[in-house]
């Protein structure tokens, strides 16, 4: 075949464009034209296109919103940098100097990052302020609260933490060690489950988007069957025939991703006030974080990529069937 092409070129019969640069620029110009034409064909039937964009947008928005929720929950729990706290309740007999001394000595241990000492007096004052039982407390003749050393361990491994708890419990001045290990394990498990769930939902919905776009492109191919036949009759290559449909898929995907992005921003705006009020009762500086610029670009890129992929699937399945008769 190369023989034939070469010959027909030299005979001047079907010379296309001379020079690689000329060919590349006309190729790029053709791409530009096809891209613009396919977009304007979508905008010409904007109501139908909008429906498709909305469906794709909703399907994409759902896993994105779930993912953002997960990120935000991770951020709240990241308050302790993923590291738990251990509270050492000291025996009542421990003097404040001994207790402070213990807190300082604990700081030297490599498995402890920081300690903070709350004296029995301070603990009582805090309790009085927070609980509203101030009157009841003043009737007691002695402070019922022990001094507490709060420890921030330097590791997160649950097995090591258990060992650390045991060794701390053996210290002379320590009465009880409170360490909510199960809560942490549960939270980690929930976060992990959430990640898997988001991944699974995301996968299923991405598959759905692929099918939606594939089906839409299949209909477009069916609508333009006679055009495809004619293009093939006058020498259109497969990639020439394929191109407008790939661009169609690209615009469907990109438009859908844009809708998804708007939906995500909208729901964040809608949720941010109550969520932040709730979160700030735990932490002062919490703000609901949405997709950043990079995340937004990833969303748009993923949408466009899904669009092209869906179109490719449809095109490879249906274009070969259409041959001029």
């Amino acid at each position: 075949m190369t023989k034939m092409v070469a010959r027909s070129k030299s005979s001047g019969a079907t010379v296309a464009v001379t020079g690689i640069r000329g060919r590349t620029s006309s190729w790029a110009a053709h791409h530009r034209r096809v891209a613009v034409e396919s977009l304007s064909s979508l905008l010409a039937t904007w109501l139908n296109s909008l429906m498709t964009w909305l469906v794709i947008g909703i399907a994409l928005a759902l896993p994105i919103i779930l993912y953002l929720m997960l990120v935000n929950v991770g951020e709240i729990s990241g308050d302790w940098d993923g590291k738990p706290r251990i509270s050492l309740y000291l025996v009542h007999e421990a003097s404040e100097t001994d207790a402070r001394d213990l807190a300082r000595r604990l700081l030297d241990r490599p498995d402890i990052e920081s300690t903070s000492f709350i004296s029995a007096h301070n603990a009582l004052a805090e309790f009085r302020a927070m609980s509203g039982f101030g009157d009841v407390l003043s009737t007691l003749n002695r402070n019922p609260l022990p001094a507490v050393i709060e420890i921030k361990p330097s590791m997160t491994d649950v097995g090591q933490l258990r060992l650390q708890v045991t060794s701390l419990a053996g210290l002379d001045l320590v009465d009880t060690v409170v360490f909510d290990l199960e809560w942490i394990e549960r939270l980690f498990a929930i976060l992990q489950f959430g990640e898997r769930l988001v991944a699974a939902i995301g996968f299923v919905l991405a598959l759905g988007v692929l099918l939606i776009i594939g089906n839409t492109i299949r209909l477009a191919i069916e609508n333009r069957r006679s055009e495809i036949e004619i293009v093939k009759l006058v020498g259109g290559t497969d990639s020439f025939v394929r191109r407008p449909f790939l661009y169609l898929g690209f615009w469907y995907g990109l438009g859908g991703a844009l809708v998804a992005w708007i939906l995500v921003q909208g729901s964040l705006l809608f949720l941010s006030a109550p969520v932040e009020t709730l979160a700030q009762s735990y932490r002062d500086d919490f703000t609901l974080s949405g997709p950043g610029i990079l995340d937004s670009l990833i969303i748009l890129g993923a949408g466009a990529g899904l669009g092209i992929l869906g179109a490719l699937v449809a095109v490879s399945r249906h274009l070969k069937e259409i041959e001029p008769e």
């Binding site: 027909s8 020498g235 290559t237 497969d238 020439f240």
Partner: peptide
């Protein structure tokens, strides 16, 4: 043009068609 069309693969068909102008009875416009 000296090319045995039996040896032309499906992918090469467009190039053959470009060297032949065809006027169809039903115009194909």
């Amino acid at each position: 043009e000296g090319t045995n069309l039996n040896r032309v693969s499906r992918r090469q068909v467009p190039w053959v068609r470009r060297s032949v102008g065809v006027v169809f009875q039903n115009h194909q416009l």
